[in-house]
Design a protein around this nucleic acid. Structure first.
Length: 498
RNA sequence: GCUCCCAUCGUCCAGCGGCCUAGGACUCCGCCCUUUCAAGGCGGCGACGCGGGUUCGAAUCCCGUUGGGAGUACCA
C-alpha cells in the first residue's frame, strides 16, 4: 500500500466554488496547480465545488471558465473536458457522498451528534472552559437509548468525524514540517442535520476518489488540514482510497494594508484587469511572481519558461502584496514584445469599446491603425490606453476637441506665432510625409523663429492631436493627412486669437 | 481566548553557514538620449524587527520575544 503520493504520476486539482467574479488570488492558485501539473507532465483536474446553493451561481461558473480559458490555463479533466472520475461538479455527486458517508458511519468513523450550539456552550461554561474552544465531543459515546430519546424530541443529528488522539503532522510542500495536537481540534461536522454533506467531507472525498496526489491550495485552508488528514485516515480504513496526498499551502495575495485582498477590492477582480488591457502573457507573468520567482535577476518570462522552471518547493511562504504598478510594468514589457500585427489585432476591441473605432472598422481605418500601431505599442502599459493616443486619427472633424488642460498649458505666449508659422511652412509643402513635415517645421520654428524645440512643437502637437502626449508628431501629421492637419492648425489659431 | 502560519529595501522576489561592506525588479529621484510622452542607457535613495544562543564564522540553524496574518460555522 502506498503511503504518500510522491511516487505516483502527478494529479492536482483546482476546485473553486462558483461565487462572485474570479479573484486574482484564486487564479494564482489555479496557475500554480497548472504549472505544477505541466512541469511534471501530470494531470490537472478542474472540479466545481457547488454545494452551497445559496451562494453559488451559474454566472460565476461561466466566469470561471472564461477566466481560465482567457489565460490559457487548460485542464485535462473536468467540466467540458470529461474524464474518468466524473462528474466534476459536486452538485452532481450527491449519491457518491451518501455512499461514502454510509460506509464511514457503519465503520464508526462518523457518529451522530445531537447537541445544539447553546448546549455545547452551556457545558463549556459549566466546566469553567472557554466556549470558544468549540464543540466538546459530547455525543461521541451516546448510547442507543440516548440517541432514541433525542430523535423522539425531533432532533436531526449532524454527523461528526471522530478525531484521533495524538499529533497530526505533515510535511508541507511550501512550509516544511507542520503539526497540530489533535486534542485541540473538536470533532468536525461532516454532514448536516438535513443530510447535506459539507465541504470538509466532500472536498477530501473527491480528492481521494479522483486520485489527487498533491493538494496545492491557499494558506487559509491550512488549519483544516489536520481534520482532513484524519478524514483521509478514515477513508483509507474503509478502503475508499489507499493513500494520502501531499499538501502545499500557498501564501495569501494581499491588498492594501495588511489584509488579504478582499473580493470587494476592485484590484482583486481578474476581469477588471482584462478590461483595462492587461494581456494574458503579462498578467500570467505577474501572477506567477506572487510567491515565486524564476531567477535571482530576472522577472520577465513566458508561460513556457514558467512551466519549465516551476517547482512547488521554490514557492515562498510569505504573503505577497498585489502591486498594480509592478503588474503594469511587467505587462508593458510583454506588450512591447508582441509582434506588431498581433498587437494591432488585440488593441482593436479596446478601441471599439472606447468608441474610437466603429463596431466593424473599414479597411481605411484599419490601415491607419496599422500605420500608427508600432508607435503606440511602445507607449502603453495596458491596451486600453491606446484609445487616448490614437483617437485624434479617427475622430470626426466636427467632434475633434482639444483637451482643456492641454490648451491651457500650451496655447499661450508665442503659440500664435508658432501656429501661424507652421501653417505657412506646411502650406508650401509639396509632399505630405513625415520627413518633409519635420524639415519644414524645424526650419520655420527652430531656425527662423529661434524657438526651443520644446516650445516650438508643443502648440502644434496640441492643435493636431488635442493632447500634450501623443505618438510622434510628424508621423501623426502624415497619417492625419494634409487637409485635416491644416484645418486643425487653423482652428487652433482662430481659437487662440479669439 | 485557543491553535496554526509568516517575518530581508516602501512593495515583490534572491539568499537555503563563509561567494553578502546583502543581489534583481517595481516605485521614487537625478542625468543622458529626445519634437511631446514613452522606450532605452547610466546613476542614486533604500532592508536582514529585537534578544539570546549554536558555530572559527549567521540574513541563513535553534530558542525566546515582538509584530503581522489566518483559522476557530450544520460557508467554501
Amino acid at each position: 500500500m502506498t503511503d504518500t503520493a510522491s511516487h505516483q504520476p502527478v494529479r492536482v486539482r483546482f476546485c473553486p466554488s462558483p461565487t462572485g467574479t474570479p479573484h486574482v488570488g484564486l487564479i494564482r492558485t489555479a496557475l500554480f496547480n497548472w504549472a505544477f501539473a505541466r512541469h511534471h507532465g501530470g494531470t490537472l483536474v478542474f472540479r466545481i465545488e457547488d454545494t452551497d446553493t445559496s451562494r453559488d451561481s451559474e454566472e460565476s461558473y461561466t466566469a470561471l471558465l472564461d477566466a481560465l480559458r482567457w489565460l490559457g490555463i487548460d485542464w485535462d479533466e473536468g467540466p467540458e473536458a470529461g474524464g474518468d472520475y466524473g462528474p466534476y461538479r459536486q452538485s452532481e455527486r450527491r449519491a457518491i457522498y451518501d455512499d461514502v458517508v454510509k460506509r464511514l458511519l457503519d465503520a464508526g468513523e462518523l457518529y451522530e451528534a445531537f447537541s445544539t450550539g447553546d448546549e455545547v456552550k452551556a457545558r463549556r461554561e459549566a466546566a469553567g472552559q472557554d466556549p470558544q474552544l468549540g464543540y466538546d465531543n459530547y455525543d461521541r459515546d451516546l448510547t442507543e437509548e440516548q440517541k432514541e430519546r433525542f430523535r423522539a424530541e425531533g432532533r436531526a443529528p449532524v454527523l461528526r468525524l471522530r478525531m484521533p488522539a495524538g499529533e497530526l503532522a505533515w510535511h508541507d510542500l511550501v512550509r516544511g514540517e507542520i503539526s497540530f495536537d489533535a486534542a485541540t481540534i473538536p470533532d468536525p461536522v461532516m454532514v448536516r442535520g438535513n443530510g447535506d454533506p459539507l465541504y470538509p467531507l466532500t472536498n477530501p472525498v473527491d480528492d481521494a476518489l479522483m486520485g489527487i496526489t498533491h493538494v496545492l491550495r491557499g494558506e487559509d485552508l491550512l488549519p483544516s488540514t489536520p481534520r482532513q488528514l484524519a478524514l483521509y485516515a478514515a477513508l483509507r480504513r474503509v478502503s475508499v482510497t489507499d493513500f494520502t496526498p501531499e499538501f502545499g499551502h500557498l501564501p495569501y495575495v494581499m491588498g492594501e494594508g495588511n489584509k488579504k485582498l478582499s473580493k470587494r477590492d476592485p484590484q482583486s477582480n481578474l476581469f477588471l484587469h482584462r478590461e483595462r488591457g492587461f494581456i494574458r502573457e503579462g498578467l500570467l507573468n505577474y501572477l506567477a511572481l506572487l510567491g515565486w520567482s524564476i531567477a535571482p535577476d530576472r522577472d520577465v518570462f513566458s508561460v513556457d519558461e514558467l512551466v519549465a522552471a516551476f517547482e512547488i518547493g521554490d514557492v515562498s511562504a510569505n504573503p505577497a502584496r498585489f502591486d498594480v504598478k509592478k503588474a503594469e510594468a511587467i505587462n508593458a514589457t510583454h506588450v512591447r514584445a508582441l509582434d506588431v500585427t498581433d498587437f494591432t489585432e488585440r488593441v482593436v476591441p479596446y478601441l471599439i469599446e472606447a468608441g474610437v473605432l466603429p463596431e466593424r472598422p473599414d479597411e481605411d481605418r484599419l490601415a491607419t491603425l496599422r500605420a500608427i500601431a508600432p508607435l503606440v505599442q511602445e507607449r502603453v502599459t495596458v491596451l486600453s490606453e491606446a484609445a487616448l493616443l490614437v483617437r485624434f486619427l479617427f475622430v470626426d472633424e466636427e467632434s475633434f476637441e482639444v483637451e482643456e488642460a492641454a490648451a491651457a498649458k500650451t496655447f499661450k505666449g508665442d503659440a500664435g506665432d508658432v501656429l501661424r508659422a507652421s501653417l505657412d511652412a506646411l502650406g508650401a509643402l509639396e509632399v505630405w510625409e513625415s520627413d518633409a513635415i519635420e524639415q519644414a517645421l524645424k526650419t520655420a520654428l527652430v531656425d527662423d523663429l529661434g524657438l526651443k524645440p520644446r516650445k516650438a512643437f508643443g502648440p502644434v502637437r496640441v492643435a493636431i492631436t488635442g493632447r500634450t502626449v501623443s505618438p510622434p508628431l510628424y508621423e501623426s501629421m502624415e497619417l492625419l493627412g494634409r487637409e485635416k492637419s491644416i484645418s486643425r492648425l487653423s482652428r487652433a489659431l482662430n481659437e487662440f486669437e479669439a
